[in-house]
Design a protein around this nucleic acid. Structure first.
Lengths: 132, 132
DNA sequence: TGCTAATATTAGCATAGGCTAATATAAAAC
DNA sequence: GTTTTATATTAGCCTATGCTAATATTAGCA
């Protein structure tokens, strides 16, 4: 059965009715459906799209590599974008469940969540850099 | 482009490079730099941003869940987008090193790479779906 | 009180992204 | 050959994204 594609506000999403079941046969086309629920998909995509950006990925890397937690100002020189951009980046990582944050005086300290750490580990373990 | 921390200093003192006991006290701002090379970052971000999209993530899930490899036409009913969009999605996943493809007659069969499988496993193992 | 430092938020802009529809290619079938 | 089937590619249209600059908030300090 096919779930998903409920009320998304994507105007491009067409609501195609599928006529799959009794479509000819013989060919390769047996329809499949996603093994995850809509909510699980959304959670994962939120996390992945949060890391899938240079600034945020690098920010997360730095946060995860630090032994103690990291404050925003430490990231500014490494990332090469403005303070506002870094704040936005960390907020998004937080909303995606990839960092935790803790307030201490006027500073905000960030650290990576277990989910983030595991993902980064797998990325390290499976990366193949092609020389191109 | 990736700007590595130049020794921008001061504004505050600080000498905490590896000591984790004390961190209140003075300021927090020791600049750090990314632990990955520019190329490694690019490879990872390409993969992550490829998965970080509803259509492509679901496509990858289906491909990874299938016992044998999957052809494009099998995805069409599940994803709810046009054939062209699916072809674009799979191309991008391929370019990101997340699926392999093999041609057989007029069909193209896709399957997930080890990197993709490991990432999906970690996502499954660490996901926390909040009821919001 | 201020004032200043650290972070957050906002508006606005330029660009990237994702889709559809149309068209092109490629391989089998006729 | 021509037709059909499976997939790829392209142009074009919107929308989303990511940044900067400016402004707002918050907390310590004079």
């Amino acid at each position: 059965m096919l779930i998903l594609a409920t009320a998304k506000m994507d105007t491009h999403q067409s609501n195609r009715t599928d006529i799959q079941s009794d479509l000819e046969g013989a060919s390769c086309c047996t329809p499949v459906s996603s093994p995850l629920t809509e909510r699980e998909l959304a959670v994962d995509v939120r996390a992945l799209s949060a890391i899938g950006n240079d600034t945020r990925y690098e920010a997360l890397r730095i946060v995860a590599a630090a032994e103690n937690d990291v404050c925003v100002c430490e990231l500014e020189p490494a990332l090469g974008v403005t303070q506002g951009a870094i704040s936005q980046a960390l907020s998004r990582l937080y909303g995606a469940g990839l960092v935790t944050r803790r307030k201490d005086g006027r500073w905000r300290y960030y650290s990576a969540t277990p989910r983030a750490e595991r993902l980064l580990d797998v990325l390290d373990e499976t990366r193949e850099v092609d020389d191109e």
